[in-house]
Design a protein around this nucleic acid. Structure first.
Lengths: 120, 120
DNA sequence: CCTATATTTCGCCATATAACGAATTATATT
DNA sequence: AATATAATTCGTTATATGGCGAAATATAGG
């Protein structure tokens, strides 16, 4: 029951769900997620930590940069299916569409330049 | 996005998830759910209200008794998929098994007798 | 009508949670 | 080493949420 509850709790915040949906098109650096969500870096970091502990995302560090990606298909059935219904349920959502549109523009910015803009 | 968030928020409390799982074997009176969850009637009523607003359960009144049932398959895709996920993910859970075992015994008690026991 | 019963709503309280800024940690550059 | 940068952790605050008992509402019976 704990695994299911960890997942449902992780999904009960809209910003976290938005972060998940951003990752459906590929991995992102946390600095990109910060820019997308418009939250403080500390807040975003904590949200990603919750998603990670719930098994919904994975993280890899490259130098100073922390990249997050959706959990691979090899994870547990509960994670895979939860991602399945959330992602399919939101792919036509207006907010998510706006986010993805904005993300396309943001990705065109050089990562170094973007990350330098994110100061505490 | 609101529908999905209503669902995920509704599912983020363990008592509410337990209530949902109790209903997989058929409709129950709120007095039976109260007895199962061991919460105050007012608390249980509020939890069921949240589930109802999320579209996960439906309610019908019979005299003094309020019966709750899982939302029928005809509801939205998001609800159907979410319910499918929760139910399949928890059908082998120890807590849920204990609940279902207890529920079998409880159902054997006459409803009238049970409901009379539930005083505010 | 009055009384009893089942359920919901309301008000309160304790706890959890999301947000922020500051401090800390990890990494890179000079 | 000192300095800069990215991310996380920590501490604080405002808000949300789960729990309870009391009050209110709805229904049934005499």
């Amino acid at each position: 029951m704990r695994e299911i509850m960890n997942i449902t709790k992780a999904l009960s915040d809209a910003s976290r769900v938005r972060a998940l949906m951003l990752l459906t098109d590929g991995p992102l650096c946390v600095c990109q997620i910060i820019a997308m969500l418009g939250l403080a870096p500390s807040t975003t970091s904590k949200h990603m930590s919750i998603l990670r502990q719930a098994g919904l995302v994975e993280a890899t560090k490259e130098g100073r940069w922390m990249h997050y990606r959706l959990a691979p298909k090899t994870v547990s059935k509960q994670v895979r299916q939860a991602l399945g219904w959330v992602v399919s349920g939101l792919e036509d959502d207006p907010q998510i569409r706006r986010d993805k549109s904005k993300l396309k523009k943001l990705i065109k910015v050089d990562k170094e330049a973007l990350c330098r803009k994110q100061r505490n």
